[in-house]
């Protein structure tokens, strides 16, 4: 009975991996076929084979750019993570501070980053402006989620800590931070993807001003030169970077919550 169930589960699991791959292969074959049969020139639409070949040929250049973009993304993400959680902690300690500053955090969030980037590029040196963009977009989800999490403490547990005379630091360390952890991790997962977007947006803005060397800059530059295969290759790398960031953060999330949080429990447990 249970053996039958596990074998069925295993088949289900295999299908969930195999089916998307099958779809991908099929789409790539159709794409390649359409390009070859209709003799579409590569500056209009390159086939997947050519894109892959470009990725290999230009690896030297593209990998350098990938590293630049990734470095900006990671720096922006870390600043957002520490800044967001730190500010949420300050808000949690002082209502007045929260009332004073929270609206500005919201304004920072709702103003489109594409519109802010050119301004930042005027006032800041280019690498710093790119970093600032990555930080701005990634910062708010962390702040908002951490603030929510720190306010979501079980009331009875709060009472219990009060009853046993817990200090502010003990409440923070033993109660508030663990309670907020699932929220903070959720915020970080959103922030990871957003910091990549922020970095790309800023690089594009900077790229049109003729500076920079990140992947997004490569895309813009290749566009001017009608080097469409390289545009696709750079885009492919960006997607892979985004997926990698997502899975790394999901894994950290899982590691931190797997023993106790509802979200990490399998239904059968």
């Amino acid at each position: 009975m249970s053996a039958a169930r596990t074998s069925q589960e295993r088949r289900e699991h295999a299908l969930r991996i195999a089916l998307p791959i099958l779809v991908l292969v099929l789409l790539l074959l159709i794409w390649e076929a359409v390009v070859r049969i209709n003799h579409v020139p590569p500056y209009v639409l390159p086939g997947p084979g050519l894109i892959l070949a470009t990725l290999v040929d230009d690896w030297q250049l593209l990998s350098q750019s990938l590293l630049v973009t990734l470095a900006t993304t990671v720096e922006g993400f870390l600043l957002a993570a520490f800044g967001g959680v730190g500010l949420a902690l300050l808000f949690n300690q002082s209502r007045l501070l929260e009332y004073s500053l929270y609206p500005y955090a919201v304004i920072l969030q709702v103003t489109p980053i594409v519109a802010i980037a050119p301004l930042l590029l005027i006032y800041l040196p280019q690498p710093l402006a790119v970093l600032a963009c990555a930080w701005i977009v990634a910062f708010f989800p962390v702040l908002a989620n951490a603030t929510l999490g720190l306010h979501s403490v079980d009331r009875n547990l709060s009472d219990l800590f009060a009853l046993y005379g817990a200090s502010r630091r003990q409440v923070l360390w033993h109660l508030k931070l663990p309670s907020a952890l699932p929220y903070i991790l959720g915020g970080l997962q959103i922030a990871g993807g957003l910091s990549l977007i922020g970095a790309v947006v800023a690089e594009i803005a900077a790229g049109s001003a003729g500076a920079g060397s990140g992947l997004a800059y490569r895309i813009a530059e290749s566009g001017y030169r009608l080097n469409i295969p390289r545009m696709f290759a750079a885009l492919l790398l960006l997607s892979i970077a985004g997926i990698a960031i997502f899975y790394v953060l999901s894994f950290l999330n899982h590691l931190a919550l797997r023993r106790w949080h509802e979200s990490a429990l399998s239904r059968e447990a």
Binding site: D154, L160, Y164, Q170, H174, P178, R259, W260, H261
Partner: peptide, 20 residues
């Protein structure tokens, strides 16, 4: 029960002593 879901049974039971 008002237990801390992130802490083991032992850590939950020991909480009042830890706080003190």
């Amino acid at each position: 029960p008002t237990l801390m879901p992130w802490a083991s049974v032992f850590d939950n039971a020991a909480l009042p002593l830890v706080l003190k």
